[in-house]
Write a protein that binds this DNA or RNA. Sequence first.
RNA 1: GGCAGCGUAGCUCAGAGGCAGAGCAGGGGCUUCAUAAGCCCUGUGUCGUAGGUUCGAACCCUACCGCUGCUACCA
Length: 559
Amino acid sequence: MPERIFIGVAWPYPNGPLHLGHIAGAYLPADIFARYHRVKGNEVLMVSGSDAHGTPVTVLADKESRTPQEIFERYHASFLRSFRGLGISFDIFTHTDTPNHAQTARDIFLKLYERGHFLKQRTRQLYSPTLNMFLPDRYVEGTCPRCGFARARGDQCDKCGSLLDPLDLKEPRCKLDGSVPEVRETDHLFLRLGDFEERLKAWVRKQTHWRSNVHRFTLGYLEEGLKPRAMTRDLAWGIPVPVAGFDGKCIYVWFEAVIGYLSASKQYFQERGDPEGWRRFWQGPEVKSYYFIGKDNIPFHTIIWPAILMGYGGLNLPYDVPANEYLTLEGRKLSTSEAWAVWVPDYLERYDPDPLRYTLSVTMPESGDLDFTWKEFVRRNNDELVATYGNLVNRVLTFTYRNFDRRVPRPAHLDARDQALLAKAKHTLQAVDKALAHTSFREAVREAFSLAQEGNRYLEDLAPWKTLREDPQRTATTLWVALYAIAALKTVLGPFLPFSSEKLHHFLGLEGTAAGAGWAIQEPVPGRPLREPAALFKKLEEQVALDERARLEAARVGG
RNA sequence: GGCAGCGUAGCUCAGAGGCAGAGCAGGGGCUUCAUAAGCCCUGUGUCGUAGGUUCGAACCCUACCGCUGCUACCA
């Protein structure tokens, strides 16, 4: 029976192009998961969009003397190209600057307001008269009142480690333009998260299928107690607060960004003339909703978003939040400001998508931070994709194509050795299935590759190039079995390597697409014509690793 | 300061109470269908340090050392 799977993926800030960290942390695992469920015949809705509002966008806009609108549109377009190039298969990738989203966000905000979940509080904050804006804590620096360190941040002193209130800083300066901020009073609406604390605790305790890092982090967070949290900001760029007396203020970007999951779902179905269709992915116990995010987003998805949903009512809470840890690059944390990153648009100019998808799948930071290096990338491409998988496919297909009239050979008696490989292929289909269902992507791809290795061993044992002359029947059988293993590889690697799986599907003489062929091994049909094979992957020069490493170092700023 | 994570073979990492593992690199051999690809053989590690619990500890507990991240506006 088909399942229904909702997949929400982190909403990127459109203040720069996507880099490998974004892909490994959220978009690739979400895409693998979506493709896996689609090929199994399950109904999938995978959504995300640009988080158009928020300070990072306005800061960049100021810096470049452009409007936030221009900035977000530029990078939103870039995101769409990156996803297309990498084969990240969103059903919809929208943004938060749409009337539909604003209306959805206002509706939820007002509902919580009417139900008394908001608290009005007057706060004193630093205001920059030159920038005409209230300054976020991190954009203020000054002298630490405890230890006298001259460059303490607004929220914390990096020297003595004290947590600070920016109002306590001596000689505060604005980090953006160096001006001296002044103190101003301002009213904000605070969401009383405490209203949901007990329900959240009870709910989280039951989510024993969550990854342990996510589960523990969330429980620890809840144990500390939930304080009211400001859900409005003194900003001009965003969704205006729909409550009287809050003119000139906007809804906190995180409050409305998570609502994007819902508004994007509505938009998707509206565009298909089925305005109520979204309900099938948001209501009812038969739908499972997964949220693929980086670890820094955990509390927003396991506490704040569920709290909002509880307050609103009638919609499903997350089923799982398989948050990833961080990908580091050549041993160092990725940093946009220091330009220490591999940008997706750059990557796609020079290389194919599947090698990156493969390397990141194997190096996915599921349980701890993991390091990406260009040397490993080149090695995995050459030793694993080209030599193990690509070469297996190539040697079997070219040998069959040349010696068996360009058709699938007819097998004779299957002996124990043949049966063993067929069994291994079937077992791999199940093992990968199980690993993917549990969002264990590294394990899944390892399982899949062990079949490729087994396939090479099988060929080595049976040596069809030796038996071709004296025993064509034996040779035909060997090749048929090998083709079977390759057909299995095409299926199990499809979610990871969609582009090469489609190629292989074509070479095998199959009609339609690999993505539409089901989670099953397409048994080779004797006599069916094969198509002329070509290499699935390109070998990369060792020099590539050195060049790319040098390119990184050259681009690096500061640090 | 608080919270979290990490420290296992030359390198990158798995493992999580019961004889220390994989891949890569290095060494030796076989093969030639294949993108000079493939296959086999080859691992002497105080599992960060010091204690503790246990018949038994990389694994659990405590302390310490080192590294990292987060601390609520850069995944």
